[in-house]
């Protein structure tokens, strides 16, 4: 049954990609790209990667699609007819694709337990991590503990993306009369959003602190909390969202999250261990691992929340300005 679902979903994914190639209406392209992200998340669930599906559904389908829609609001929605010939790209793609298909025949068969990927480090993670780290979710163990240094790097990359976007666009506060929400007439939407936003923030907190036991964690929770505020900004307009959490405050929050993460590493060095060696944080190594993982997940969550919301603010204030002019 799982194979059959896999077959159908992958076929739908391929059809969606094919349709995106031929569509000229960019608005439709972005909507289909949202569907594409949703479908790939569904396939990740089917292939047992629930944490990845969680991330793809919230980050890929949510934030990317919203950012692309804002960009389209500024750049226009019609793609002009291409001037160069399509024959050469088609030829290149077909040749590369044929070579890659030939290459896949050397791959080990899908899903076989004896494949080389499953031989070396994976069995150790599967068998030892519940004992060494004490968490049921192996993905969180590997992400936060075994590969904690890597995750620190990823958090810094997300932070520097914020710096890049802000230095390119910047967030400017506008005079109130310039900014008019396009959805001001939708009263039903106002009421419903006000009801569900607290629920969404509650759910984000659940994802943040339940990530050790089920799917979830700092990355996902940060994005979901940011999505709640994005909904607020979409429905009620940017000035009201600025009044709740301003861009300046978010910049402080983003750097605070990264520093929180790094300070855990420094503290463990102070305690006599290596950088990010959580075993030294408490007398009992397992308890130390728990403290370390909760704090660094919190740091990741704060950074991702602040970065995603601030990027949306930057795009949104540009869109409002180009709309007013």
């Amino acid at each position: 049954m799982a194979e059959f679902i896999d077959l159908v979903l992958l076929a739908m994914l391929a059809l969606t990609a094919l349709r995106i190639i031929f569509l000229k209406d960019l608005f439709a392209v972005v909507m289909l790209f949202g569907i594409y992200s949703f479908l790939s998340a569904l396939i990740f669930v089917n292939l047992d990667a629930v944490d990845v599906a969680f991330t793809e559904a919230s980050v890929g389908a949510g934030i990317s699609t919203v950012l692309m829609l804002v960009t389209l609001a500024m750049t226009g929605r019609k793609e002009k007819q291409s001037t160069h010939s399509t024959l050469l790209p088609l030829f290149v793609v077909l040749v590369t694709g044929a070579a890659l298909i030939y290459g896949t025949l050397d791959m080990p068969p899908f899903g076989h337990p004896d494949n080389p990927v499953h031989q070396h480090v994976a069995p150790r993670y599967i068998e030892e991590s519940p004992k060494e780290v004490g968490l049921p979710n192996m993905v969180t163990s590997v992400l936060a503990s075994y590969r904690g240094f890597d995750t620190l790097g990823e958090t810094v990359v997300v932070f520097s993306a914020l710096i890049g976007v802000l230095s390119l666009l910047g967030v400017r506060r506008k005079k109130k009369k310039d900014l008019e929400s396009g959805l001001e007439t939708h009263s039903v939407l106002h009421v419903v959003s006000k009801i569900i936003i607290p629920l969404v923030i509650l759910f984000a907190l659940y994802v943040q602190f339940h990530g050790d036991f089920g799917p979830g964690g700092g990355f996902q929770a940060g994005v979901i909390a940011a999505a709640a505020f994005i909904l607020y900004a979409l429905v009620l307009g940017l000035p009201k969202a600025f009044a709740v959490v301003g861009p300046k405050f978010l910049q402080w929050m983003a750097s605070f999250g990264v520093l929180l993460y790094a300070s855990v590493g420094l503290y463990s060095m102070y305690k006599g261990g290596h950088f990010l060696d959580y075993n030294k944080l408490a007398a009992d190594p397992i308890a130390g691992q728990h403290y370390g993982i909760i704090i660094i997940e919190l740091g990741v969550g704060i950074t991702v929340f602040a970065v995603m919301l601030n990027i949306f603010y930057a795009f949104g204030s540009q869109a409002e300005r180009s709309n007013v002019q």
Binding site: V52, T55, V139, R147, D150, V157, V158
Partner: peptide, 24 residues
């Protein structure tokens, strides 16, 4: 195997960050 999941989880978040820079 949990290892590819970890690699891809962080890759998705970095991917959206680079997309944001590209769009800006």
């Amino acid at each position: 195997n949990p290892l590819p999941h970890v690699l891809i989880l962080t890759a998705i978040v970095v991917g959206v960050a680079t997309t944001a820079v590209g769009l800006s």
